[in-house]
Simulated scan of single mutants.
Amino acid sequence: MITTGGLREMSLQRDKITAPGQYPFSIPVLRNFTSLQFHPKVTYLVGENGMGKSTLIEAIAIACGFNAEGGTKNFNFSTVQAHSELHRYIRLIKGPVKPKDGFFLRGESFFNVATNIDEFKDAKLLESYGGKSLHKRSHGEAFWALFMHRFGGKGLYILDEPEAALSPARQMAFLTRMHELIRKDSQFIIATHSPIIMAYPDAVIYELSENGIRPSAYTDTEHYKISHQFINNPQRMLKILLEENG
């Protein structure tokens, strides 16, 4: 999985860790973690809540030089110091070609990114997000403006749950937009719960669980299997769920 640009691999420098029993090193996926190879096009991190997807993707983004709360490498605002110290203990292997564009999206702090853009009062900057304040759009439209206007190609795009504000139709449209950007030499690293978002065929999926991190086929992920079972037989699934709860 070698690419000429973007990220190739990350590894955990265990020799530097002085408190292995403390957060974030106490989370299940890091207990026996050594390294992770990135796909040249798309790398997915999937798994249940609390398994460490956001912690891991946040550390990757900060180690790449992005602001902890999201944005481009030019953003340096901070509202809450809530990120972990994991980025200090990981080593990234990069390709020889430096990406010309990049963005770190965190759904939970995108409001703060939008506020920071408005505070610049820069018409040219605003134009790169569609020419209209992201606060004057719905949450979903703000995300979509980011993908369509700010993401330009030849970039490294690190996304934490991009489906958070997107309808199923927009999630499918996102796959199309992502494909366009990949054809423009872009690389994506995405943490997601969405079976739609994680369906891009030329990718690697890492499933995070109590047992660590393992590569998984799309149809073998828990997210796919549960969604498939529910959509194909909602009456049966609802009967099981509701009867089990009285």
Rank of each mutant, 00 (worst) to 15 (best):
A203I: 07
R170Y: 05
T79R: 14
P215T: 03
K98Q: 15
R106N: 08
N245E: 15
S227Q: 10
E222D: 11
R31E: 04
S128I: 05
M178R: 08
K184L: 12
D15E: 07
D202T: 06
Y157A: 12
K154A: 09
L36W: 02
H139T: 07
Q171F: 04
N67W: 11
A19L: 08
F77V: 15
P40Y: 05
N245K: 15
H135G: 02
A123M: 13
D160T: 06
L166I: 08
R150D: 01
S128F: 00
Q37F: 11
L208G: 06
M148P: 00
P99M: 13
P215A: 03
F38H: 01
G95D: 04
R88C: 11
S227N: 10
K53R: 13
L105K: 11
E141D: 06
L159E: 07
G6C: 08
Y200T: 05
V80G: 08
Y200V: 06
L36Y: 09
M1Y: 09
E127H: 07
R236C: 02
H193W: 00
H228R: 15
N112K: 15
I182M: 12
T176A: 07
F111P: 04
N112Y: 14
M10P: 01
H223L: 11
L166P: 10
I205V: 07
Q13K: 04
Q171W: 10
T115K: 13
A217D: 08
A142F: 04
F66V: 09
R170M: 10
P162T: 03
K136M: 09
D185T: 09
S186L: 11
I2Q: 03
A203E: 06
I190P: 03
L125D: 03
I197Q: 01
R137P: 01
G52A: 03
K41A: 09
L156F: 11
I196L: 11
Y206N: 04
G5K: 06
T115A: 13
Q187Y: 00
N49G: 04
V29P: 01
S209W: 00
D15H: 10
Y206D: 06
L146D: 05
N112R: 15
G212I: 04
I226F: 12
L242T: 14
G153D: 02
G212S: 07
G131W: 12
N211M: 03
I190D: 00
T4L: 10
T55H: 03
V97A: 12
Y218Q: 01
G6V: 02
V42F: 01
I213F: 04
K124S: 14
F151H: 12
E127N: 13
S26R: 14
G70M: 11
L56P: 00
E244K: 15
I189E: 01
I205A: 01
S227D: 08
T4W: 13
R137F: 05
K132Q: 13
G52Y: 01
E85Q: 12
L30F: 04
